[in-house]
Amino acid sequence: MAAGDAHALRSLTLRYSGMLIALAMRFGGDQSDAEEVVADVLWQAWSDAKSYDAGRGSVAAWLVMLARSRAIDRLRAKKARQARAAANPPGEAAPDPASIVDAAQRARIVRAAVASLDRDERTALELAYFSDLSQSQVAQRLGLPLGTVKTRIRGAMIKLRQALSGQRD
């Protein structure tokens, strides 16, 4: 991926745009908003490819981080404009193993792992990740002590990681 190479941008778009738009839409935006976010993210990644640090993770993880950050920024701007109190609770995406990250099999495993999470763990993790809420706000929203919320999120992450490790093995 090098700035100035249109083929690299096309390849980046075709490979990651689907999952990134799905991710962006989970932050409360519609399809148009999500496309806007992802177009900006892919453009940024393509034109500023040198800012990518392979030592900090894969390209997919980098793009996810950029997309999440951009989606949260857009969500905050939208909240400010509409003076809404809080974001909508995240929706749930229908499983579709096609064209996610590196391999469809991995996506299936991840989704299966997410689906197998304890309901409380999954709710805590989704609320923490797909919203713009602070620790105390998530705890308040769930009506739980902060320590309990952290334990649930950490437990969910550990199960997901174990599932991904098993897929690699």
Partner: peptide
């Protein structure tokens, strides 16, 4: 680094949008 990969996998575990060509046209 490993946890970030896990988070990324979780983030995109949902249904991907079939908009690759459409988005590419925009870009």
């Amino acid at each position: 680094r490993a946890w970030r990969e896990t988070a990324a996998a979780f983030a995109v575990a949902g249904d991907p949008a079939d908009t690759g060509e459409h988005l590419w046209q925009r870009l």
